[in-house]
Amino acid sequence: MTDLAGLLLGGAALLLHAALMVAAAPLVEAWIAPETIPVTHPARWPERIMRPYRALGALLARETIRSGNASPLAVAAPLLAVSLTLVAACLVPSFAVGLLDAPLADLLLVLGLLAGAQATLLLAAADDGLASSGLEAVGQMVNLILAVPGGIVAVLTLSLLAGGTGLDQILAVPHGGAGLAACCALGLAAIAATGRRSILSQGWSGADLALLRVQDGLQMLVWIDLIGGLALPGMLAAARSGPLGWLEGLLFWALRLALGTLLLRTVGASLTSLSSRRRLAGLSLLVAALAPVLLLAGRAPA
């Protein structure tokens, strides 16, 4: 296959990946947090699938109400958060590796973009000057601070395994027990850092709330793709394999998505308080610190 054909296939796979991410985000958000979608009557499957999109449309049709003393940040924050998360979502492979943006995809960069989106929303939460959203923002900020070291130490293990932090590089190697421990640490850090949005979302309405839900869904998708790809390696197609090869990758992606959604829904229903998520940050650091030990213990003596 020529370089040009590979480039075209990589570009097409990237476009398909981005479209899938944007399309699946409302669904994932609704599946993981079903309380955000108003239930009017029992519905069949096609209606259930369309319900999140209808809810988004209804939100966009409503008037956006903002606080009287809101600063320009209140307008910009949802847009900026969605943009940062969308770029992160485009960098993390869903069904195929070797996308056109693969040379740019770095695990630390993805974590940085997600943390930037989270920080933007936490900043905006304090914009109206209310006590409830401010306290919630402070609590989530603490969780974010505590989760970062665990996440970075987990990246250290993955980097030791793969010889770098490029995402395609990391997803290409089998990980073993140490890699699984690092995945667990990364997942625990993610759950601790993302937090719940029930109080934060009370300050938003209309188009802003719609953007916030899309961002939430995109963020969940990024974590599911990332941790699913790390925990279940070998299920990603190569972008150069063409549309027939992508089908297999898409099938496995749907499987990982279903598993990840179920897991996140269970965890989300179980860990409802900020303090319970905060303990996951501690657990993340512990597991992340033990992952390199597992890695080194499994190697032959020098």
């Binding site: 956006t64 109400i65 903002r66 009287g68 003393n69 809101a70 209310l130 188009a207």
Partner: peptide, 13 residues
């Protein structure tokens, strides 16, 4: 997509 505009209200306390 957002057909209606923005309205400013006092912050809910």
């Amino acid at each position: 997509l957002a057909v209606r505009g923005e309205r400013r209200e006092p912050a809910w306390e």
